[in-house]
Amino acid sequence: MSLFARNALIALAITVVLTGTVIYAVNYLNNARVAELSTIEDQISIDTLSLDTQFSLLESAPCDSAASSTVLTGELSDLGNRLSYAEDQLGSDNPQVIRLKQQYSLLEIRDYLITKQLAAACGTKPVTVLYFYSNAGDCADCDRAGYALSYLHNTYPNLRVYSFDYNLSIGALQTFIALTKVKDTLPAFVINGRQSYGFTSLPDLEKQFPKGALATTSPKL
């Protein structure tokens, strides 16, 4: 065998090993991301169940669980950001991403229901936004709307934003959509029970909030 042929074969072997190592490393990291998401979801799931149980146990003084609920909403928001990044990296058709999104949607619905229950029991008036988007390529303004909501949530941490992939196939979410009567004109918002569709600008979105709703939450300085 000539020196050239020998070197070419060795180089090919090195290339295959190196490429394989890179693919393995990227997969390993992606799996680690999914594992972390799963761990966070499990933790939030436990916390939600705990809050739910606490709520039931303290029927006489349910408002003691309000603080825990606020902390949970913040964690949910961080989880949503991570999930969105993982979706970008792994693809929206990745089975693990879909499973995590389904679990995340259930947690959000659960948190939303607890928030409503606490509001009714304690007489608080939380501002909640249900945000429905699609990343199937049929919603040109969804990225802008999501970014504007991130800004609002970042500026007003008490604002409770719940994001849902409108096309996600899970029974509870579809029931939730049916109950809230949100049409498939996306992006869609349900702000304290009032529906609105489409996104043009941040000021226009802010107009959809109840008068003084943003002002009464605690702006982050």
């Binding site: 070197n7 070419a8 060795i10 180089a11 090919l12 090195i14 290339t15 190196l18 490429t19």
Partner: peptide, 14 residues
Amino acid sequence: LFLAIFFESFLLVT
């Protein structure tokens, strides 16, 4: 990219 790695590997071996 695969060809570029192959080229660099060949360079190293040679």
